[in-house]
Design a protein around this nucleic acid. Structure first.
Length: 270
DNA sequence: GCGACAG
DNA sequence: ATCTTGTCGC
């Protein structure tokens, strides 16, 4: 076979952009889910909303997190990981893994084409089994709306899995003029702020930069994935932050690495 | 033209 | 993403 550009040619990127534009038409950027947030204060009286059938709405209980780790010896070997945590206790109640060879490289702005397929596979397996802990919400290691075309991995996964998703970035993706020094200045205005809204050149609010713990100087970047508002996403992230990285993503990250350590030399799916 | 660029 | 030592603090 000749040495042709198969992975990240401009033609490939154009095709990827068309897919992103097409999927983006299905994106929902406001709260649209069947559950509700748990009461912030343990209130004695329950005033939960009723759904159309006059029943109590379900409360958000099972929060998923996804991440992928790679084999240092062969960076094309990936371990996709899904964890589900019980929101109240932040304990892991489910995890699953999938080791595979990824042929698509990481290209900034097109992370989903590399990582979404393996993650969708793990999600679909759990859904097919009608597992009782199937997540009501998914936190994604990567951005959502904070993306050159407003459709990062969290949006991509949310639309394809039809799940509410929140994007959590550990580094800033420089889009719409946003840059690290600007974020740092904003956070340090008026003493030190816990979080700030990030607005791009277009005037749209794209994300929130927040420091979940007092000691962490470096912020995380929260953006909308699918079927959720930024305000709600922020509340949920705050509920799950034992450390700088929210627990669902942190656990997915930890367990993903651990899985690769403990399962050496297994031949991945061809 | 040059640099920047989630994971 | 991954490679890496020590170091500071509870």
């Amino acid at each position: 076979m000749e040495h042709r550009e198969i992975c990240c040619s401009s033609e490939q990127q154009n095709r990827w952009m068309e897919i992103q534009d097409k999927l983006k038409k299905r994106l929902i950027t406001e709260d649209e889910f069947t559950w509700e947030l748990p009461p912030s204060l343990p209130s004695s009286s329950s005033h939960r909303e009723l759904n159309r059938e006059g029943e109590k709405k379900q409360v958000l209980k099972y929060v998923g997190g996804v991440d992928i780790s790679f084999l240092k010896e062969d960076p094309s070997i990936a371990c996709g990981t899904l964890v589900v945590l019980e929101l109240e206790s932040l304990k892991v109640v489910y995890d699953d893994f999938c080791v595979a060879k990824l042929d698509i490289p990481y290209v900034p702005g097109f992370l989903a084409f590399r990582e979404a397929p393996i993650l969708l596979k793990i999600l679909e397996k759990m859904k097919k089994d009608c597992h009782p802990f199937y997540p009501q919400l998914l936190m994604v290691d990567g951005n959502g709306l904070l993306h050159p075309r407003g459709f990062g991995l969290a949006c991509h996964l949310g639309v394809l899995a039809d799940l509410p998703t929140i994007g959590v970035g550990k580094n800033l993706h420089h889009v719409e003029g946003l840059n690290h020094s600007e974020v740092r200045e904003l956070l340090e205005t008026d003493g030190h702020k816990e979080s700030i809204f990030l607005t791009g050149n277009s005037g749209c609010t794209l994300a929130v930069a927040m420091r979940p713990t007092l000691c962490a100087l470096k912020p995380i970047f929260i953006s909308i994935g699918h079927r959720i508002s930024l305000a709600t996403a922020l509340k949920i992230v705050k509920m799950t932050c034992n450390y700088r990285v929210p627990e669902p993503i942190r656990q997915a990250d930890i367990r993903s690495r651990e899985y690769l350590r403990n399962h050496p030399l297994v031949s991945p799916n061809p």
